[in-house]
């Protein structure tokens, strides 16, 4: 695993220019207020009503009678991002769709969580090699929980949601990034542009350089 960890950090394979919060590694003392606050949040994570592909069907199945996510306070699917706490990226993220997803994310109020459901959302999945597929939503949004599987069964989804709850438990008002003062809003993700290919505006300089190099080589 060591090797892969190192590669993962490799000059921003994921999340260029994005500070991955260390809140999982360094758990500081959790005060009573935190506990109360987290208890409230963990049982009312409202997902954004938002489905992309096959995984979305399993997400819907998880909301129905047999699995009943309402037991976790997650049944209130909000069609508007303004009222949602969690974006469940359920399916293949295509380049064409990506700007809409980013716009939705930017409109969500904090605290907000992103869960990558299924192989596609985690890293492109079986369609990774496709020309219209984004190799993982984590290239653009900070993903909190990855749920492998294609599709994850509703039970696997619920297991992933419990993982998210655990993460929420460990957060502290003082430490979480959206209350930290003095920093610019690191959560804002600039909108990518659909050009000849997908343009991630944060990486413009890099593209220019690589395109120039290619031209030189050609």
């Amino acid at each position: 695993m060591e090797e892969h960890k190192e590669e993962n950090k490799y000059e921003g394979l994921n999340l260029p220019n994005y500070n991955i919060p260390e809140d999982i590694q360094n758990v500081v003392s959790i005060t009573t207020i935190d506990r109360l606050y987290n208890w409230g949040r963990r049982w009312s994570v409202w997902p954004l009503m938002f489905g992309l592909a096959c995984c979305a069907i399993e997400m819907i199945a998880a909301q129905t009678a047999r699995y009943d996510m309402a037991r976790f306070g997650m049944e209130v699917m909000r069609p508007t991002p303004r009222q949602a706490d969690m974006m469940l990226v359920s399916g293949t993220v295509t380049k064409k769709m990506l700007p809409s997803i980013i716009r939705l994310y930017n409109q969500m109020p904090e605290p907000k969580y992103v869960v990558a459901m299924g192989a596609c959302a985690s890293s492109g999945g079986p369609f990774k090699e496709g020309y219209n597929v984004v190799a993982g939503i984590d290239k653009f949004l900070p993903v909190d929980v990855y749920i492998p599987g294609c599709p994850p069964t509703p039970q696997a989804l619920i297991a992933g949601m419990m993982k998210l709850q655990e993460k929420i438990d460990k957060q502290s008002i003082k430490k979480v990034r959206w209350y930290e003062k003095g920093k610019n809003d690191s959560n804002y993700v600039p909108m990518p542009i659909l050009g000849p290919d997908l343009i991630d505006v944060r990486r413009n300089a890099e593209y220019k350089e690589a395109a120039a190099k290619k031209e030189g080589a050609a």
Partner: peptide, 8 residues
Amino acid sequence: NLIFPEGF
């Protein structure tokens, strides 16, 4: 997963 035309 990107390709750009030359000199883009």
